[in-house]
Nucleic acid binder design. Structure first.
Lengths: 223, 223
DNA sequence: GGGCCGAATACATCGGAGGTATGGGGAGGT
DNA sequence: ACCTCCCCATACCTCCGATGTATTCGGCCC
């Protein structure tokens, strides 16, 4: 195995074993390189790689630190990976989202509090009756994100966040080409909110399913 | 932005835009470095980072190539990230798996063919009546992996693969400490297989839910 | 006491040199 | 004519040393 890959493994091991904790600072480049027995250049490659997936945070003039390792932060890197999957696998991503989104919405219906419900309503109200497609999709993203956050599962939230990215373009496209898509989306949002307010898990799940499935169905007939 | 990060973005853009296709070979280090306007050292950091997440494949003495970019390959990197989440967030990962696994099993019930059913049965038969805990967990992993593959969604398959890793240790632990866990697991596997053979999506979904939930419940009371 | 400036620190970037694994082409044998 | 083995050009691997740049923190001035 290459020295750089060894270094990646060793740094990973230091973190997993607890020798390095979230927020901790690593020894400076030259020291860590000597400690791991490789050159600064090779070590830098390892650090850069771990930095890309948000394990490490390097600050010039300051030092290199272990990130918080929050699920949100780590799965954020998922978005980067997902960017490479365009067009051909969008349907598969959408299918996964269709599984997770209704489940998350149902979970949220039991846990969401009044303040969060109010915030959701404000989000929907902020959008005018005739929003642009870009505004609508942005609102859509934010609306679902807020709901999933209320599900209380950070992993689930980050996962859906990463998965929602690649389907965004498809949704914009739909808004532009399908006549009643905008109005239908707004209506579905209201129904989901209503189900959450009623603490009706089954209704929330069903409306979320309908919501995602409508995009999926349209995409399937279009491609 | 640092030159290395720029290089990462540029290489990503070359791939996403289609200038570089899966399997294509990149210009050699020195040429690409000159083309992107940075030193070889800095370019190497970018390449190493993209190589860690399986976007690029570097072969010494040969060249650097774009990987197949299969969902399976890219989400494999998910396992690396997930390794950093131990103990505290296992329950959240398990909760997500509890959502996905039943759905995938239900999907598989409609698509699985006779050969795949036979392979599943052989897998279960290969395990003796009194397997070791490690054998059982390995078989468990493989059994579910085969089922999810039959669901026909590569993204879903890779995602579950990545998520199953961190819960493996928990399952081993359970097998060691909970008396009837082994026998119950074997029974549940048979029931899932039976439901698949009957093409009974609802039964398959329910048994898969029971299967994952039993681990979840045990873990929740233990932690 | 507060704000400004400069030294120390640590990462960023570079160019070059020597090492090593790979792959292919040519020489030789069958 | 075909196959096998060996040599070497190629391209990545690793390292070194030097210079540039951003941040931090202390002392100094107002």
């Amino acid at each position: 195995m290459a020295v750089t890959d060894e270094a990646i493994e060793k740094i990973k091991e230091m973190i997993v074993s607890g020798a390095l904790r979230p927020g901790d600072r690593l020894p400076k480049e030259s020291e860590l390189a000597a400690e791991l027995g490789l050159s600064r250049n090779s070590l830098r490659e390892a650090v850069r790689a771990l930095s890309l997936i948000r394990i490490l945070d390097v600050r010039q003039g300051d030092g290199t630190y272990v990130t918080s390792l929050d699920p949100q932060l780590l799965l954020e890197a998922l978005g980067f990976v997902v960017d490479f999957h365009r067009d051909d696998t969008v349907l598969e991503f959408l299918a996964v989202r269709r599984i997770l989104e209704p489940a998350a919405t149902a979970m949220a219906s039991a846990l969401i509090d009044d303040a969060e419900l109010k915030a959701l309503e404000d989000q929907l109200d902020a959008l005018g009756p005739e929003p642009s497609v870009e505004e609508l999709v942005a609102c859509d993203l934010e609306f679902h994100r807020s709901i999933v956050q209320a599900s209380g599962n950070a992993v689930l939230c980050s996962l859906l966040d990463g998965l929602s990215g690649p389907t965004t373009r498809a949704r914009v496209w739909r808004g532009l080409t399908q006549e009643d898509a905008v109005g239908r989306t707004l209506h579905e949002h209201r129904m989901i909110l209503g189900a959450l307010r009623d603490r009706d898990a089954e209704a929330a799940r069903s409306w979320a399913t309908v919501h995602v499935a409508s995009v999926e169905q349209w995409l399937r007939t279009t491609l």
